[in-house]
Design a protein around this nucleic acid. Sequence first.
DNA 1: CAGTGGTCTAGACCACATG
DNA 2: ATGTGGTCTAGACCACTGG
Lengths: 257, 257
Amino acid sequence: MLQTPEIPIATFEGLVFGPRSDMPIWQQIRDHILGLIENGTLRSGSQLPGETHLAARLGVTRITLRQALQHLQNEGHLTARKGVGIFVRSPPAIFTVRDGHPFHENIETHSEPITTDTRFVRREPASTQLAARLRIPGGANIIHLRRLRLLGEQPVYVNDKYFPADRFPDFEALYAERQSVTDVFRAAGIAAFRRVETRISGGFSSADEADNLRLTPGTPVFHLNARNEDGNGRTIEWTSGCWPLTSVEFVFGAPEK
Amino acid sequence: MLQTPEIPIATFEGLVFGPRSDMPIWQQIRDHILGLIENGTLRSGSQLPGETHLAARLGVTRITLRQALQHLQNEGHLTARKGVGIFVRSPPAIFTVRDGHPFHENIETHSEPITTDTRFVRREPASTQLAARLRIPGGANIIHLRRLRLLGEQPVYVNDKYFPADRFPDFEALYAERQSVTDVFRAAGIAAFRRVETRISGGFSSADEADNLRLTPGTPVFHLNARNEDGNGRTIEWTSGCWPLTSVEFVFGAPEK
DNA sequence: CAGTGGTCTAGACCACATG
DNA sequence: ATGTGGTCTAGACCACTGG
């Protein structure tokens, strides 16, 4: 078990689902649990009682309870892990991401610190699709970097970056030093570079993405794709990221502030 | 009944949900129906058989069938209307929207024509929030324009635009002529204007949005907010739109093509 | 009125992860 | 071996929409 802070016994009792109420029971349960999350009774990372127990405590069927739980999962408030349990995963705030700005500039003050988890850096041959995106010959080598951004212990962003391998012979060593792609660019003699195109689309999290972001697979997400060029108009980076739908807002063309 | 093209009787039979298969039954049903939509057997706008009949035909419980249907609704392929029926609503393609470009430039060639449905134009006092967004005094009057963009008969975008009323005394008459906001700006002596800020966030469709877009309420959507300024840096438009998550891709900073 | 989708119950078996 | 969430069944009543 990851962590199972004690949940007050009576937390889930005491609800009245009178037939008087015109709101469906599952919605009342949803709202009640959401309230417990937002007022801090259920902290991020804590585990809920098992569905069977919880349903019994609430006096409803497991199916009715699951209706509520599924909505909360879609909205990114809960994560279910088969054979393990259901956990609270509420990002305490919404990120505001400004296009083209370094990640850390985007983060307003939050209660929890932002950390970066580098999952791997490796070299591999480019797929034909990726080669086209990087404007390099098919089959040429690329550097593939995957990172995770966390708010406290909660992952909020997975990001895959791809670089033409021949431009950065010492990528791994340079990156290991500072953990910063910008610094690698500088060290490679690329002082000026800019984001030339950003694409945002929507979808539903794959098993892989869900695993990284600790979401239930199928949860709606943003997909972000962008291309960076150096000062000479050559593509030096393709980035491909995934955010939970409910935890980010993108801002484009925002002036100073 | 809106329109109920005949659906071949055997369309839904013949599926084998062997326990051999490792994929859940509801997923197989989902994929099967999606296949029928994509290969044109189920045309956009056509009605499905009732859940009871369909479940019987497929040899599963209604609940199992509903599991499949709910996913298809989330993905924007189906719409359920209580007391009426379930209808196919698949946009035949994904829109690519470039920031700051007029809407019609964004639409690549599609099989169906794009049309615009102006729902209303009216004047009303600004809420404090809206006044701040338009940089006008609280309580000042605004013009509120709501439009719907349709692909064939399928709505794909709802859009609310707000303008400071005192800048456009003849808005209604001018707009009625050409149905174009750009033309109204020109007629008002505003030759140059530009989009200064665009925000994109995600959410779940409200009852209102779902009604306009013919989605099942709760379906994931994009929310788009943007501000336009005239050549003198004065705000002349605030726009607020809603897209189904799966039918659009946003492009920012894209160069010519 | 009849038919639709929305909600709910009371069971059951399974695959999975953990100890 | 135990407990978890994931799937599935066979019923039922309701609110809503349309003719």
